[in-house]
Amino acid sequence: MITSRLLAGSIAVLALAATAACTKNDEASWPTKPVRLIVPFPAGGSTDVVARLIAERLGQKLGQQFVVDNRPGAAGNIGTDQVAKAAPDGYTLTLTTSGPLVNNKYLYKSMPFDPAKDLTPIVLVGEIPLVIVSTDKVPAKNLKEFIALAKAAPGKYSIGNPGNGTIGHLAYELLRHNTGTQFLGVPYKGDVPAMADLMGGSIQAISAPITAFIPQIQAGKMTGLAVTSKKRFPQLPDLPTAIEQGFDVEAAVWFAVAGPAGLPRPIVDKLNREINLVLDSPEGRSKLEQFGALVGGGSPEQLDTLMKGESEKWKRIIEQANIKLD
């Protein structure tokens, strides 16, 4: 009886050891089949284009196809949720944005996943800072002068944004809160109608991602009042940051690669290393710059820290402004 028990115990230990060894071998040899990279937005956008470059380069380096799968809907929640609910084996990943990774949790009453609990951060890909722009119809050459004008005439100066709950809207609320200035916020359905009204004089400024406004500012058709990044934007070196002008306003839309919770560390490290190499290449930098994005990179821990910090900041602003999308 004792011998039988000892034999059974030995078999169990050997089975566990064999399972652990197989798991380690699987992780070391990953990937052994095609990997799905879900982009929770339509094809053709900046996130999709960058995802396809990364997928192509990963496929070339790791010897398996990385297939970009567009799953748009619910401000990125639908596609990101598919990754959150996938098996943590490295064969379902996402290149998603700060909306599903941070902001949407506070904008929607019900979320199908919790990004902090259901996803594994892998690497920050890039970030697009916001810009606050005006025209020569407003006698302000920078944000400091614009704030002074608005404080002297509360409620007179309006700032448009690309839509309710967008990062442009959140940045407007952050600006309003941190400067104690009474603006009139005007949401639009995208950048284009907001730009038309700005040029026509219906609104006095816009808060939105910088990409669409770079050529307008460079051509002198619009006045850049401030960029909302830590440092000046390389393509517009003469445009000061909001922080430089004395206003604690920092905002960006950023995008990152993530996997399901529980993704093995060897797979995370392999992905992080290879994607960093893509981002640091001339081709990677050029592709990001094409969309007005600053190159990301760094460790999974740095992305995790970013997600936590952004979560705290935008939770406070969203609750104070009572912004809801459903």
Rank of each mutant, 00 (worst) to 15 (best):
P100D: 07
T47K: 06
F183R: 05
A242S: 14
S311Y: 02
A321P: 02
L14S: 12
F247T: 00
L271W: 12
Q302P: 01
S134Q: 13
T92M: 05
N272E: 12
P88K: 08
L149Y: 06
G126T: 09
G298P: 02
E56Y: 08
K287C: 00
I11Q: 10
D114P: 01
F113K: 07
E145V: 04
L306V: 00
P282Y: 05
R273W: 04
K231I: 09
V133C: 09
P282T: 01
Q290A: 00
A242I: 00
R273Q: 12
A51I: 06
P129R: 04
D48V: 09
P34Y: 11
S158D: 01
G201S: 14
M195N: 12
V131G: 11
V249I: 08
P72A: 10
E274H: 11
P129Y: 10
V138I: 15
K141I: 00
L225C: 15
E301T: 03
Y106A: 03
Y108L: 05
L62C: 11
I275W: 06
Q235K: 15
G165Q: 03
S110I: 11
T166M: 03
N272Y: 09
E310N: 00
S281A: 06
L277V: 09
Q182I: 06
L16N: 09
Y172G: 03
S29M: 13
T96Y: 13
V138E: 14
L119Y: 07
P193M: 07
T211N: 14
S46P: 01
S98H: 04
L288R: 01
G297F: 06
A152Y: 01
K324W: 02
A205M: 08
L149P: 09
L263I: 07
A21M: 07
P237W: 08
A148H: 05
S29Q: 10
A256N: 09
P264T: 08
D81E: 13
L279Q: 03
F233C: 02
L124V: 05
L130F: 14
G168D: 06
S281F: 03
T96D: 05
I243R: 13
G284V: 05
F213G: 15
S299P: 04
P187A: 12
K221M: 12
Q182C: 06
L239M: 00
T305M: 02
K231N: 15
R52A: 04
P264R: 01
P187C: 11
S229L: 04
G296F: 04
A15E: 07
R316C: 00
I267R: 12
G220W: 15
D81H: 10
